[in-house]
Amino acid sequence: MDERVTLRSHLDQAVQDAPNAPAVAAVIEAVAAASIRLAVLIADGPLAGITGRHSGINPDGDLQKDIDVAADEMMRRALRMAPVAAILSEESELPEMLDAEAPLCVAIDPLDGSANLENNISIGTIFSIRPRGNDVLSTFFEPGTAQCAAGFVVYGPQTILVLAMNQSVDIFILDRLAREFLLIAQGVKIAPNTPEFAINASNHRHWHGPVRAYIDECLAGSNGGGADFNMRWIGSLVAESLRILVRGGVFLYPADARPGYREGRLRLLYEAHPMALVMEWAGGAATTGRRRILELAAKTPHQRVPLIMGSVRGVRDVAVIHEGIEPMFDHSDAPLFARRGLFR
Score class of each variant (00 low, 15 high):
residue 49 G to T: 13
residue 150 A to T: 08
residue 126 I to M: 11
residue 115 A to R: 02
residue 40 V to Y: 00
residue 108 I to E: 00
residue 79 L to G: 01
residue 151 G to P: 09
residue 63 L to T: 05
residue 159 T to I: 01
residue 74 M to K: 07
residue 177 L to A: 10
residue 156 G to S: 15
residue 135 D to E: 13
residue 130 R to Q: 14
residue 116 N to V: 04
residue 72 D to L: 04
residue 170 D to P: 04
residue 78 A to M: 03
residue 168 S to I: 00
residue 146 A to L: 04
residue 42 I to A: 02
residue 174 L to D: 01
residue 141 F to M: 05
residue 113 G to A: 02
residue 67 I to Y: 01
residue 153 V to Q: 02
residue 138 S to Y: 06
residue 55 S to T: 13
residue 91 E to P: 04
residue 112 D to M: 01
residue 125 T to C: 11
residue 49 G to F: 05
residue 53 R to C: 07
residue 157 P to N: 09
residue 121 I to Y: 07
residue 140 F to A: 06
residue 125 T to D: 00
residue 92 S to C: 09
residue 118 E to T: 14
residue 122 S to W: 01
residue 124 G to N: 07
residue 83 P to L: 15
residue 126 I to R: 03
residue 148 C to W: 02
residue 173 I to V: 13
residue 93 E to A: 15
residue 66 D to N: 12
residue 99 D to W: 01
residue 78 A to Y: 10
residue 88 L to D: 00
residue 92 S to R: 05
residue 68 D to N: 05
residue 101 E to K: 08
residue 141 F to E: 01
residue 124 G to C: 04
residue 74 M to S: 04
residue 44 D to S: 12
residue 173 I to S: 12
residue 175 D to Y: 03
residue 54 H to T: 12
residue 138 S to N: 13
residue 132 R to K: 15
residue 125 T to G: 00
residue 144 G to V: 10
residue 143 P to I: 13
residue 160 I to R: 14
residue 135 D to F: 03
residue 61 G to I: 03
residue 80 R to K: 13
residue 96 E to Y: 00
residue 62 D to H: 06
residue 162 V to T: 11
residue 161 L to Q: 14
residue 42 I to Q: 08
residue 145 T to M: 09
residue 104 L to V: 15
residue 102 A to M: 09
residue 150 A to Q: 11
residue 174 L to Y: 07
residue 132 R to D: 08
residue 54 H to F: 04
residue 47 L to F: 07
residue 97 M to T: 12
residue 115 A to T: 02
residue 85 A to K: 02
residue 145 T to W: 01
residue 152 F to G: 05
residue 98 L to M: 09
residue 126 I to V: 15
residue 131 P to C: 04
residue 132 R to S: 10
residue 98 L to W: 09
residue 135 D to I: 11
residue 105 C to S: 06
residue 128 S to T: 06
residue 143 P to R: 02
residue 55 S to M: 07
residue 115 A to N: 03
residue 140 F to K: 00
residue 102 A to R: 07
residue 86 A to W: 01
residue 138 S to L: 15
residue 145 T to N: 10
residue 162 V to I: 14
residue 171 I to R: 15
